[in-house]
Design a protein around this nucleic acid. Structure first.
Length: 742
RNA sequence: AGGCUCUUAGCUCAGUUGGUUAGAGCGCCACCUUGACACGGUGGAGGUCAGCGGUUCGAGUCCGCUAGAGCCUACCA
């Protein structure tokens, strides 16, 4: 794609330097009490056999069943009914809970229920936090070992822990001999069978809910109690919220700031230990006397008791822990290196919104903590590339587009340009047809440059400066247009509007430079019109426009622009290091703009009439132009060759009445008439003229009403009123002319 | 459940603080091989701006409601 990387600064997560940064940060946070080791409910992946953090859990909507289970109340003929989507967990139930204010069950609080299948007695407790009286039956089964909420309810009510699922997702011995060793989902089936036999199974309903899975392997998460390492995150989050709030860090597009705040303000402690093979090993050391040491350097003996029998923690760190240090760890931190001095803090972080929490937030928190500075001042979040109908690409759907295939087919420039031209911060529905279209643009650039180089006889570095005062209107116009394009492109780039920027240069190059300017200079370059000096000027400007256009285009289409630019022979060794163009006021030329605007509008009108009247390009017309301004009249005489060439005319006649039967119109404020060979007018053409007239009359009527409204005239900005008035006059003239055609 | 975003041409999307006749690419129709390019040129067709209501001299743009789509976060036994 033409990404420009400094490969001399390649870094690998497990490099010596980065490992030292990781250890330094870990020990510092530990010593400050911000890293702790504790037994807690964590998200456990039974497939990967590791704990994962909250952000690594993805929620999937699933259609499951909701099962009702009847629990007899001990020493009574009553029974309590609970609902669950996970019947297998009942084997680990250690209580039933009801709401303390629930009249239906008040008398049962403190008594016991009998767990079906296991035939265990479990207490009936009151818990106003866990139980919502109005939901379901108002009775909840409590499984403190396999559910986060139940775990907390267990702590509140002094309930026993009873793990029935192990770290591989299989049932433990505690689940009973019928179930031990069974996978949790097979156990579910068997539990249901047995409940049915015992007549303890109630209603079974279809139920849609979301289920947490491990983002990496799609395995359903098992909440489990285990000993893990955590980062106490709130003290880190607070300053990270502040720097975004006060603008030290700007998130683009800004709407993501709300999402950032929402998450950061409700953030929960970060589980950083993983039971995996690969990663930074946690720098904690245990001796055989049970002492723990956390240190940057491996200790050879226990600092507490001197025992030489010491082993390192086998858990590794969440990969995002080291990634969070990336902006400064890659530059040599904790040493005060020249790189760190020069490049830190960085300017812009470009990434996808999908790792805003995983990575961006952690870099901000850790950066602030360890460097006393924001790691970057702007975060640009680009959209996700989707298929052409906006669907997320997935192997199962078969709608994955491989960038390498696209590059092979249409070129890296075409793909890069396509990715740029979508609006900032929105997802990118990538259609091959779109890439193909911009591939055609690359082809257009190539061909236009080929044409230019056919006529150029000097290298860019030898071209010399342009004598602006000597330039003709066409040259002044294209430089003026290029200048405005340059202004737009720069403005858009600084606002991260890559879509606007790429669109502006695309439009200029194809539809102004190629479609109009090149066609306009052809008569001069081919020696059909103008002097040698004119030809020299035209070539110089052609080179200038090409040079600046290529530089403007280079960030969007790096390969083709460099290839062509090298052929033009600039001073710099590559367009990559050539200065990016900036707008210069002196190039603006309103007079040339309006003159060429009039000429191009007239050409378009003639072409339109030619098609409408059923003529072909071989049929040549005469054009009559009326103006009371002598300067303009002279210009039309000077530039008659443009009209003649591009509109395929025989003559341009200024300030002379057109003969009977000519087509009259008003274009860019000028009354014109087109004289063509006699030909019978078809019914369609008459109808078309009629429609055109009606359209203009309708618009005029609306405009008249608008201008008659005092409220509008008094309140609207003068420019708007003036525009409306000018349009009114033009429409009146136009209608008069069109009526003449009938 | 809460938050954010979106709904504009057949398709995919622009449309900046409200203000001329709502734009682009692809697709479609007609004509054209004209001295860079048919991956091209020229001209054209196609839109009650999701719906309803409001504010305003004026609404695609601001406000409210409704319907639909997507995303993020949390999680309900």
């Amino acid at each position: 794609l033409g990404a420009s990387c400094d490969w001399t600064r390649l870094r690998f997560t497990l490099d010596e330097g980065l490992s030292r940064a990781v250890r330094t940060v870990f020990v510092s946070l530990y010593n400050d009490g911000l890293i702790y080791r504790d037994v807690a409910m964590v998200n456990w992946c039974p497939f990967c056999r590791t704990a994962i953090s909250d952000v690594e859990v993805e929620y999937r909507d699933r259609n499951d069943k909701l099962y009702q289970i009847h629990y007899p109340v001990a020493d009574s003929d009553r029974q309590l009914t609970v609902a669950t989507t996970r019947p297998e967990t009942m084997l680990g139930d250690t209580a039933l809970a009801v709401h303390p204010d629930d009249e239906r069950y008040k008398d049962l609080i403190g008594r016991e229920a009998i767990l079906p299948i296991a035939n265990r007695r479990i207490p009936i407790v009151a818990d106003p936090i866990l139980v919502d009286m109005s939901f379901g039956t108002g009775v909840v089964k409590v499984t403190p070992s396999h559910d986060k909420n139940d775990y907390e309810a267990g702590l509140r009510n002094n309930l026993a822990q009873m793990p029935v699922i192990d770290e591989t997702g299989k049932m433990t011995a505690a689940a009973g001999s019928d179930f031990e060793g069974l996978d949790r989902f097979d156990a579910r089936k068997k539990v249901l069978e047995q409940l049915r036999e015992l007549d303890a199974l109630g209603d079974v309903k279809d139920y849609q809910h979301s289920v947490g899975v491990h983002g990496k392997c799609d395995t359903i998460i098992e909440p489990m109690l285990s000993r893990q390492w955590f980062v106490k995150i709130e003290p880190l989050a607070k300053p990270a919220i502040e720097v975004v709030r006060n603008g030290e860090i700007q998130i683009i597009p800004q709407t993501w700031e709300a999402t950032y705040f929402n998450w950061m303000e409700n953030i929960r402690d970060w589980t950083i230990s993983r039971q995996l093979w690969w990663g930074h090993r946690i720098p904690a050391f245990y001796c055989d006397n049970g002492h723990m040491t956390v240190a940057i350097e491996d200790p050879s003996s226990c600092p507490t008791c001197g025992s030489a029998n010491i082993t390192q923690e086998t858990d590794v760190l969440d990969t995002w822990f080291s990634s969070g240090l990336w902006p400064f760890s890659t530059m040599g931190w904790p040493d005060k290196t020249p790189d760190l001095e020069t490049f830190y803090p960085t300017d812009v972080l470009i990434t996808g919104f999908d790792i805003l929490f995983f990575w961006v937030a952690r870099m901000i928190m850790l950066g602030l903590r360890f460097t006393n500075s924001v790691p970057f001042s702007q975060v640009f979040l680009n959209g996700l590339v989707r298929d052409e109908h906006g669907q997320k690409m997935s192997k199962t759907k078969g709608n994955v587009i491989d960038p390498l295939d696209v590059i092979d087919e249409f070129g890296a420039d075409a793909l890069r340009f396509t990715l740029a031209i979508f609006a900032t911060g929105r997802d990118i529905p990538l259609a091959k047809s779109r890439v193909q279209g911009y591939g055609a643009f690359a082809n257009k650039i190539w061909n236009a440059s080929r044409f230019a180089m056919m006529h150029l006889d000097t290298q860019l570095k030898d071209a010399g400066s342009i004598d602006r005062d000597a330039l003709g209107t066409v040259e002044r116009w294209i430089l003026s247009r290029l200048n405005e394009t340059t202004r737009d492109v720069n403005k858009s780039l600084s606002a991260f509007r890559f879509d606007e920027a790429s669109n502006a240069i695309y439009h200029f190059f194809w539809h102004e430079f190629c479609d109009w300017y090149i066609e306009m200079v052809k008569p001069v370059l081919l020696g059909k019109h103008g002097s040698d000096t004119d030809r020299k000027q035209a070539k110089r400007v052609l080179l200038e426009v090409l040079d600046r256009s290529l530089r403007l285009l280079h960030p969007f289409m790096p390969f083709i622009t460099d290839e062509i630019w090298l052929k033009l022979g600039g001073v710099e060794p590559s367009v990559m290091v050539a200065p990016y163009p900036v707008a210069e006021d002196v190039l603006e030329d309103a007079e040339a703009d309006s003159m060429i605007d009039a000429v191009t509008s007239m050409i378009t009108t003639v072409r339109n009439v030619r098609v409408e009247r059923g003529f072909t390009p071989k049929d040549r017309f005469k054009l009559y132009v009326t103006t009371s301004n002598e300067r303009e009249a002279a210009s039309f005489n000077d530039y008659a060759y443009l009209l003649i060439e591009l509109a395929r005319l025989t003559d341009v006649i200024v300030n002379t009445a057109a003969p009977e039967g000519a087509h009259h119109d008003v274009v860019a404020g000028f009354a014109i008439a087109i004289e063509f060979p006699p030909r019978e007018v078809t019914k369609e053409q008459l109808e078309k003229t009629q429609r055109e007239l009606e359209k203009s009359r309708k618009e005029l009527a609306a405009l008249d009403a608008k201008l008659a409204n005092e409220q509008f005239v008094n309140n609207a900005p003068t420019a708007v009123v003036q525009q409306a008035q000018a349009r009114q006059i033009e429409l009146r003239e136009r209608i008069a002319k069109l009526e003449q055609n009938q």
